[in-house]
Structures are given as C-alpha cells and as structure tokens.
Design a protein around this nucleic acid. Structure first.
Lengths: 219, 219
DNA sequence: GATTACAGTGAACGGCTGTACACTGAATAG
DNA sequence: CTATTCAGTGTACAGCCGTTCACTGTAATC
C-alpha cells in the first residue's frame, strides 16, 4: 500500500528509549498532561476538567501543574494548538491533484476519514468545543475560518469557478466546510462498521453541492 | 404587518396577576429554575452549572430544588423538552406553501431568522449542547433526526424529487438541516446588523444545493 | 567537586459542591 | 374548625476545588 496517506503528526513519531535530559523530562510531563486531558475529554466538556484530576492522571501532584501551565485555560489553548496542527496536516494531505471534481471529492473524503480515525481525540475535542462557548470556541472558530478562506482560494482555480465573486466563493467554501464538520461528527458518533456508509453519504453531499455550481447565477 | 409569523410558544403568553393556587406557585418556581438555568447557559456549558447557583438564581434554598427535579440532569432533560418545543413550533410555522423552491427557501430562512431572534437562549442551548456529549446531546440528536426525517417526507412531495430513493432524500434532508444549524450558530454569534448578510448567505447556500437536484444521478 | 536551577512534593487554607435531616407555615381536604 | 399535605427553610457534613508556601533531590553549570 504505497499510496496510503501519512496520517502521522509531529508528536507521535516514536522517541528513542535513551532519555533523560532535564528539559526532555519536562516535555514528557507536559505531554502527559495534554494526553490525560484529551482522554478525559472523550466524554465531557473541557470546562468540567479539574486541574487536580489532570495532574493526577499525568502522575504529578497538583501544585506541580503550574510548572507547565499557568491555568487550565492555558492548557486548553495548548490543546487547541495541538489539535489544529493535526487539522492542518490533514488539509495539507488533501491538497493534491485539482484535476476533476469527482477525483477531488473522493480523495478529500478518504483523507478526512483516515485522519479522523487516526486522531479521534483531536477531532472530538475540536468538534465538541467548537460550539461550547468561551475562548477555546473562539480560537477554534478562527482556525476554521482560516481553513475556509484557504479552501476558497483553492476553489478559485477551477475553471467553472473562475468568474465567481469572492463572496460567493466563501459561501461555497463555508458550505463545504460544514459538510466536512458534519461528516466528522458522524464518524465520531458511529458504531463500528458504519464508516463506508458515512463516507459514501459525505461524497454524495459534496457531489450534489458541486452539481449546482455550473448552473449558479449569483442574483 | 398581518402576515408576520407568530413566534410565541406556549409558555410565554402572559399570565393573569391573580395568582396563588398552590400548584400554580410550584409551577412558577419550577419555571424560575428553568429560566435561571437558561440564563446561566448563555456563556457556559450545561455540565458546569451547579444545583446551588440555579436554586439561588430562582430564589430558593438549595434543598428545595429537589421538590422540582431529582437532579441537575433531570432539569437538563426538561430544558431539552422546552427548547425542542420551540424548535417544533418553528418547523410547524415553516411548513406552509410547497409551491416553488425559491418561495420555500426564502420563507424558511425568514421563519428561521425570526424564531432564532425570538428564542435565542433556546437555540443557543440546543446548538451548544448538541455536540457536548452525554445524555443531553443524545436527546437533542434524536430530536434533530426526527426533524430531518419529517423534512425528507416533505421533500418527497416535490415533482423533481418524486423518483429519488429514500436514502438520497435523507442525504438531502440532512444536508439542508446542517445548513440550517450552521445558520443558527452564525446568527447567535453575529454582531448586531449582520443578520441580513447571514440570512442572505443562508438563502444562497440552499439555492445552490437545490440547483444540483435536477441534475442528480444517484450512482 | 561545589553551586545553582528547578521539576516535583506535601501540608494547609478557604470556598464551593451535593445531599441528609429535622423543621415551619400556609394552602388544601375532610 | 381541624388535620393533612408539601414547598420552602436552616443546619450540618464530607468531599473536591484552586492556590499558597516551604521543602527536597537531582541534573546542569561553573
């Protein structure tokens, strides 16, 4: 399987076992805090996590938490950064051959599927907190708007979309992003074995949207 | 303005000032608890509310809370019921003249806009908790799937959609619902004065989706 | 080899949490 | 008029919370 997408992100390339410089130990504890938080977030919102339980999960005493983050909010920001790094990795992977709509659609959905399955907790975190309100939701919103903007630029390269207004291009990009988000949530909520059906539906939705493009009049 | 949509739901018709039967007092306190919770939910997720602060907001002592709800989760369920009653009211209002796509689109978006503005806290609650995980999210998910199913049936009445498979009809209905949800979130996050732009974009998105319909081949 | 920097410790604090329990007083039922 | 029902009260308790402070032991520095 030589053309499989590389779903790894920076932090999960395996480290050598010969550890121990001081700053490296610190980095590991920091990562343990982030990983613990991400685990706990599997079934509850970020705002319900306590500093004490995250510290306990990472194997340190509550007060040592402050050696790494000024507050839980601060850890939340770091978590958004980590998760959006994964998201950007996915977008980079998906931005390949802009030849045909159909090719682009199935390739994008395949990439989406692989990344969601390889980083379920990151995507769960992003979709859960996106609408939760507060500063994390805002930070995630900003990131998604950046994503949507990039997509609009990519879309402008297609012949049929050359003459669209930038406003209409953004409208289309937002629509595609919301289909993507819906698909991510469906994948995360799915019982095993439903993946093919969900990705199939996602492709259909994108095809239907793009089917309207040649007949669009902005009015 | 005789053809304005009636955005009231059952609970906000004003009561007479001549109160006081015992069960009526109880109902009022219960409603005060629900209203207080809804206020607090404006800027935080449900899971962070405490029984004590909700009780305090409603003007009763913490232990009296149990005269009305067995737990905060129980209050959450009641809140989902109240909010989905508003949602169903909106759907009933929107289900009017299935003559043309264009007429249906702008009428639906107008109804959506009016209901969201008239019941911001209900819609904020629904969209916030939809992805928050836990039993509330599940209950809201069930309700939205019912909505989507009803919409699929309505859509089947349009000539162009007569011969679509039920699967494709659900795909289309879900797509429309996700556009609606996106629009709701945009309205709730909007700074004042942006409403026209948001509803305009929402109409465009729906028009684009429906533009693909006549050219659809399931395959 | 002596000194410093610092990740992690452990006790203690005041504040908020849910809930048990015995109570009061007024609207209701007999 | 009397007895009952029950929404709301007030006290109390054990548990978790974030944060403070003085501390220890070891890796890094000189």
């Amino acid at each position: 399987m030589s053309n499989a997408v590389d779903t790894r992100t920076l932090e999960d390339v395996s480290e050598p076992l010969t550890p121990v410089s001081r700053q490296e130990r610190k980095l590991r504890t920091r990562q343990a805090l982030l990983d613990t938080a991400l685990e706990l977030l599997a079934d509850r919102p970020f705002a319900t996590l306590s500093l004490r339980e995250v510290a306990k999960g990472a194997g340190i005493v509550p007060t040592a938490f402050y050696r790494h983050f000024a507050s839980m909010d601060d850890l939340g920001v770091a978590l958004v950064e980590e998760a959006t790094r994964t998201l950007r990795g996915m977008i980079r992977s998906a931005r390949t051959d802009p030849d045909t709509y159909q090719g682009m659609i199935s390739a994008s959905v395949t990439t989406l599927h692989q990344f969601v399955r390889a980083h379920e907790d990151h995507f769960r975190f992003l979709t859960r907190e996106r609408y939760a309100g507060g500063s994390l939701a805002e930070a995630i919103g900003v990131e998604l708007r950046l994503f949507s903007g990039d997509l609009a630029i990519d879309l402008a390269r297609f012949p049929k979309l050359r003459e669209w207004s930038t406003e209409d291009l953004h409208m289309l990009a937002d629509l595609i992003v919301s289909v993507m988000l819906t698909t991510i949530v469906e994948l995360l909520e799915a019982r095993p074995g439903q993946d093919a059906k969900i990705t199939g539906t996602a492709e259909k939705r994108l095809r239907l949207v793009l089917l309207g493009v040649p007949h669009w009049k902005s009015a």
